[in-house]
Design a protein around this nucleic acid. Structure first.
Length: 291
DNA sequence: AACTCGAACAACCGCCTAACT
DNA sequence: GAGTTAGGCGGTTGTTCGAGT
């Protein structure tokens, strides 16, 4: 994997949270050039970050197709079952959860599921997923409060008072979807540019469908491509644009959807295409998918 | 109002593996 | 085959928040 083409100057690497500007630069670069040599990305994208950091940011937060927010009960069960079988193989577990990253699964496990399992141990270790979701509900109530608080303003614009009160990182969180609770209902504009996984996966039929998106406007039918659950992992191709999402099947399909457009347009055109608001027209705010 | 504490999660670090010279 | 480097993965830490006192 040695990449001799990646001559990189010594840089004072930035650390910590990513600013919106940095995210924009990285996303812009990735959309135009796709995934290639990570160590070259920060230089070419004009970022003072390590390639590794860029990779992580892209994979965990910026790449298309990411699902954020609450884990469904089904997802919880999948995680618990797979963890029982695989242990802390987060990337492998995440493969079975389209739109989830290993980091997200790991965090969810460490912050919540582990305790739940420990608590349940002695009675019904992993079968407890269908048990009471008390703590979950409590957590969700807490989140719901936050959501209500924020949605009371019922605007994508942050309240004026908060705009001035918020720290840069806070503003960043609200804008980029990591603000606790708020992200459940207020899709950051940034991610709203992307099609929803729910547009791709028909939740009622549980089948993979062609998204009715600008790059697929001729294909608004609901052709089944793959089935939900673990069987979704049907493709094994590595995706360039989607940052290795090929592992998760659905993203191989997504890539297949993207590729014709990518090949027909320049990077700028592709970028502009994705910025069209109509992509998110059908976005159901109950769906916790951010694009 | 101020402080403390636990939860949540973003990001970094270190190790391992694979690709390349 | 050995050395180097990038990418991937899992563990851990740091930051920020809301809730409780």
């Amino acid at each position: 994997m040695g990449c001799r083409t990646c001559e990189k100057p010594k840089v004072n690497y930035r650390k910590g949270l990513w600013s919106p500007e940095e995210d924009e630069k990285l996303r812009d670069y990735m959309l135009k050039h796709g995934q290639s040599c990570w160590s070259a990305v920060p230089v070419k994208a004009g970022l003072q970050r390590k390639g590794k950091s860029c990779r992580l940011r892209w994979i965990n937060y910026l790449r298309p197709g990411l699902k954020r927010g609450f884990f469904s009960q089904e997802e919880e069960e999948i995680i618990m079952n797979l963890h029982a079988k695989l242990g802390n193989k987060w990337s492998r577990i995440a493969m079975h959860l389209p739109g989830r990253t290993d980091n997200e699964v790991k965090n969810y496990w460490n912050s919540y599921l582990k305790k739940k399992v420990i608590k349940a141990q002695g009675s019904d270790p992993y079968g407890s997923a269908t048990k009471s979701r008390d703590s979950t509900n409590q957590s969700q109530v807490t989140h719901a409060k936050t959501i209500n608080k924020i949605s009371s303003s019922e605007s994508m614009e942050p309240p004026e008072s908060s705009t001035t009160d918020l720290s840069p990182s806070m503003v960043h969180r609200m804008e980029f979807g990591s603000f606790k609770g708020a992200r459940q209902q207020h899709f950051p504009k940034f991610f709203a540019d992307w099609p929803s996984v729910d547009q791709v996966i028909d939740q009622s039929s549980g089948s993979f469908v062609h998204a009715n998106t600008p790059w697929n406007s001729n294909n608004s039918n609901t052709d089944e491509v793959l089935k939900p659950g673990s069987s979704q992992v049907v493709a094994d191709s590595k995706s360039d644009l989607l940052g290795g999402y090929g592992d998760s099947g659905i993203y191989g399909e997504l890539q297949a959807q993207f590729e014709p457009v990518i090949s027909q347009t320049t990077g700028d055109e592709f970028f502009d295409l994705l910025s069209l608001g109509e992509i998110s027209v059908n976005l159901d705010t109950n769906h916790d998918v951010l694009f």
